[in-house]
């Protein structure tokens, strides 16, 4: 399946774009999306472990199963306020 991942903040700047499309197998997890993202954008891989993932506006753990219609985002720890 094709999955669009939104990027924010320093992740967006490092990637040089605000979203990226990944090719994943059906029922892929967040962990597999992360691996595919790092393969597509190796510069982000140096940030492994400190990029957070969200699915449909909620933080998502590594084992969260993804669907093509999900809104998926990847970003550094938040710093609002």
């Amino acid at each position: 399946m094709k999955l669009c991942v939104l990027l924010f903040s320093a992740a967006r700047e490092i990637a040089g774009c605000d979203s990226v499309e990944l090719n994943l197998r059906e029922s892929a997890t967040v962990a597999q999306a992360r691996a595919a993202l790092f393969q597509s954008l190796p510069a982000l891989a140096t940030r492994n472990g400190i990029l957070l993932w969200a699915v449909n506006n909620e933080y998502a753990p590594d084992d969260r199963v993804l669907q093509q219609t999900d809104v998926v985002a990847c970003f550094p720890p938040v710093s609002g306020g």
Binding site: Y59, F75, P76, V78, G80
Partner: peptide, 14 residues
């Protein structure tokens, strides 16, 4: 509220 907002709400400061 303000502590939890700063930890959770997806907003970034440059």
């Amino acid at each position: 509220l303000i502590d939890t907002l700063k930890e959770n709400v997806p907003i970034w400061k440059k």
